[in-house]
Amino acid sequence: MSVAAPEARGPSTLAEIGLARVAVVAALVVISVALQSTVLARLTLLGVIPQLGLILIVSLAYTDGPRVGTVTGFFGGLLQDLLLPQSIVGLTALVYTLVGYTVGTFREYSPSQSVWAPVFAVGIASAVAELGYALLAILLGQPWVGLEFTVKVAGFVVLYNVLLTPFVFPVVRKIADRYRPERVYKF
C-alpha cells in the first residue's frame, strides 16, 4: 500500500514532506512576504505593519508540526532577512526557526481543539519574535530605534497579527491539508 511504500526506502524528510507541498509552501512564503511589503505596508495599524510571514509560519507549524515549522520558519525568516536593507542576515531566520519549532512542538503535546488556540499561538509567537529580534539586533550592535518605539511596535504587531489570524489560518490549513502527502501515520 502507498502507506508503507516510502517507509521501505527509509524515511526521508523530503519524501515525507512531498515535493508538491514544498512548492506550494514556497509560493505561500513568497506571496505572504510580497503582500506584507505592498498591500499591508499601506494598510498599517497606526503605522505598524503586520507580520504576515510570521502568521503563515505559525499556522503551518500549528497544522503540520515542529519539523515543517522549523523548515518554513528558517526559509521564511531568511527571505525576509535578505530583503531587509542593512540588517544582519540570519537573525529573523534564527528567531522564526525557534518560533516554528516551538509552536509545532506545543501543538503536538497539547492538542487543544479550541478555535482560539491558533490565535493565541500567533499572539504569543508575535510577541516573542518581535522582542527577540529586537534584543538580538541590539546585542549585535545594530542602529536601533528607542525602547519605547520597540515596545509600541511589538504591541501593535501582536494586535494586528491576532486580528488577521482568523482570516489567514483557515486558508493556510486548507492548503496544507490539500497538499499533505497521503502517508500521515508513522510509528
Binding site: P66, R67, T70, A93, T97, G104, T105, E108, L140
Partner: peptide
Amino acid sequence: MYRRAGRGRVLLLAFVAISIVVVTLDFR
C-alpha cells in the same frame, strides 16, 4: 513518537546552526 520528536530536535539544531553560520558570514 519518540523518534519523531528526536528527528524534530535534530532538524531544529541543524537550522539554528545554519542561521548562526549565516549571521557570522554576514558579519565577516
